[in-house]
Simulated scan of single mutants.
Amino acid sequence: MSTVRTVLGDVEPEALGVCDAHDHLFLNSPRLPGQELDDEQAAAEELAEFRKAGGRAVVQWTPYGMGRPADMLAELSEQTGVTLIAATGLHQVAHYDRELLDGVRDRLADTFVSELTRGIRGGPRAGMVKVAGGFHGLDAHARKTMTAAARAHHETGAPIGVHLELGTAALDVLDLLCGDLAVPPSRVILGHLNRSPDLRTQKQAAEAGAFLAFDGPSRANHATDWRLLDSLTALVEAGHADQLLIGGDTTTAEARSVRGGPGLPYLLARLRPAIEREIGEATATGFFVQNPARAFQADW
């Protein structure tokens, strides 16, 4: 039976409820010095605000080596009543120091499988694999990590979420993962497509069968944010309503709602009502409830 793997154990997909399909409660990267997400109390307050707004689940895309305290995620889930899904996987080279990468580079697939099946450092298990493409292409690091992610998928059934750099290289990712590496497109979640608002590419990715995660209102992407509803409307009209996901992608402390930013609650306080007005309440419910339930389930 298909279930969703959360930090508190496997649950039926229907149990997720209203879901932020791509976000971060904890994140540490040399590309964001001084802006680390490492405050457990702030994370708890943010989850409490999200739940107050009607949210019930958050998918935490922070992968290996970027400050994801799995035990803390489990504690927060118990404390706040918000279901949390953790990620294994690996981001781009720029997010790591050389020593950490050298220590894991030759055992990526084994690491991903272990964190999906046995737990992150002996704690809660990951429920997805997160990897990353490059800007308009895939470098050697991306190909290596995606190859490892594909093996982890074939061994566990786990979904694979992909960071698309500035929204680019979606079709290259699908050619590799779903072509060469034989991952079913329905098990691939493409993140950040809204950052490159090329509707033709978005439609091609949807036609291939992948899930499309439109995320990032917590980021300063003003040139593309205002096109979000246009893209969602066009994809719905093209028959892809059941492949669309919505997330916040909070990556800095200042972006949290409890620090004055939009944060997790913005998705439900502002974005969901806008989607309901523009496209319809039932479709919006699909984006936030039914679609994540299908995207993140697996036959573990």
Rank of each mutant, 00 (worst) to 15 (best):
L166H: 06
A152L: 06
T156Q: 03
D180Y: 13
D175K: 15
L174H: 10
R195S: 05
C178L: 11
S196Q: 15
L176T: 14
S196A: 15
G191Y: 08
L174I: 15
A158H: 04
R151W: 12
T168S: 12
G161W: 01
S196W: 12
T156M: 05
A182F: 10
E155R: 12
R187A: 05
G167Q: 05
V162T: 04
H154F: 09
L177H: 07
V188Y: 00
V188R: 00
V188W: 00
G161N: 10
L171A: 08
I160P: 01
H163M: 09
H154K: 12
N194V: 11
A152Q: 02
H192M: 12
E165H: 09
A170D: 01
R151T: 14
L171I: 13
T156S: 07
G179Y: 11
T168R: 08
T156N: 06
V188H: 00
R187P: 04
L190A: 06
A150W: 05
D180N: 13
C178Y: 03
G167P: 07
V188F: 01
V188S: 01
L176M: 14
H192A: 11
A158P: 05
G191N: 08
A152R: 01
I189V: 15
I189M: 14
L164P: 00
L177G: 05
V183S: 00
H163R: 06
R151S: 11
E155Y: 04
V162C: 03
L174V: 15
D180K: 14
L177W: 06
D180C: 10
P184S: 10
E165L: 12
L181V: 10
V162F: 02
L190T: 01
G167I: 02
L176C: 13
P184H: 10
L181C: 07
L164M: 11
A182N: 12
V162M: 02
H163A: 06
N194M: 11
L164Q: 03
L193M: 14
I189L: 14
P184M: 06
G179D: 13
P159C: 14
T156F: 02
D175G: 15
A170H: 07
A169Q: 10
L190V: 06
L181F: 05
L164K: 00
L174Y: 11
I160Y: 03
L164G: 00
D175I: 15
H153K: 08
L177M: 13
G167K: 02
H154E: 10
L176A: 14
G179H: 13
N194C: 11
G157A: 11
G167N: 05
T168F: 02
P159Y: 11
R151H: 14
A170G: 13
L176R: 12
R187K: 13
H153I: 03
L166M: 10
I160R: 00
R151Y: 11
D175T: 15
C178P: 02
G157H: 04
T156A: 08
